[in-house]
């Protein structure tokens, strides 16, 4: 099962490699990874997605907790959260398809960020399912390149 794990950690050299080392040392793959500073410049937030059964993910979570530089670990699967990822997709856009690409992008609320005579680079943001949908629809037209940020995720605030 896919898990999104969010880790708050000290913003120091070597910390990322401690985290990734836990995964590589156990032969687990990281599917996506995204790290940046939080509102506190001494703290970074790392979001990663991985696959594994619950016992493996529980073990990973505990091992992450055990790292001295880790402040907090949240398995986002266990909370209500907002999940986003951004992709920049370069898609073939020639005479017959330029308008269609624009229409599709508009439906997904994406925007064109680079234009050339034969292609558009478009930016799309959303949960992983939305990115999959847009990629599936653009694929027959001809995708030339995709760059993705990896998932970021934030717990929803309590409603009451």
């Amino acid at each position: 099962m896919r898990h999104v794990i969010s880790v708050l950690l000290q913003n120091k050299p070597g910390v990322l490699s401690r985290v990734t080392g836990l995964f590589s040392g156990r032969g687990f793959n990281i599917e996506s990874l995204s790290v940046a500073q939080t509102i506190d410049p001494e703290v970074s937030c790392l979001t990663l997605t991985t696959k594994g059964d619950d016992m493996i993910v529980e073990q990973i979570t505990k091992q992450l907790h055990k790292l001295i530089d880790v402040i907090k670990v949240t398995d986002m699967n266990e909370t209500e959260s907002v999940e986003r990822e951004m992709a920049i997709i370069r898609v073939k856009a020639e005479a017959g398809t330029r308008a269609e690409v624009l229409r599709i992008i508009d439906i997904f609320r994406g925007k064109v960020v680079d234009v050339s005579p034969k292609s558009y680079a478009v930016e799309v943001t959303g949960p992983a399912s939305k990115l999959k949908a847009v990629i599936d629809i653009l694929r027959p037209i001809g995708i030339q390149e995709i760059v993705r940020t990896g998932v970021i995720s934030m717990s929803r605030a309590k409603k009451s």
Partner: peptide, 8 residues
């Protein structure tokens, strides 16, 4: 004392 030992 090490939570990661439990149910490993």
């Amino acid at each position: 004392i090490d939570p990661s030992s439990i149910s490993k």
